[in-house]
Amino acid sequence: MRLLDYFKSTRNINTASTAKDRLQVIIAHERQAMRGPDFLPALRRDILEVIKKYIPVSENQLDLHVEQEGGYEVLELNVTLPDEEKIAS
């Protein structure tokens, strides 16, 4: 059996590198979420509600995060606006 294993292992898929890639993505994401103030998700939700009153935007078109720039903390808000025609209709 050990002899067979030896040959079998050559066609092994490297799941460890998949694990590493997945971890790097999720941990970077979670660290960013942890770093921001506690009220950030609620603020984001409220802002989205207000904008929705005037422009049809969806959840993923709004990007809100806090960044450190030198001695300042900057609250950055980005809204991707939909095409003109869609607003008119």
Partner: peptide
């Protein structure tokens, strides 16, 4: 064998 995260991978993360 490539089916476990290595020490280096974990330290990097």
């Amino acid at each position: 064998n490539g089916d476990m995260l290595s020490v280096d991978d974990i330290l990097e993360i």
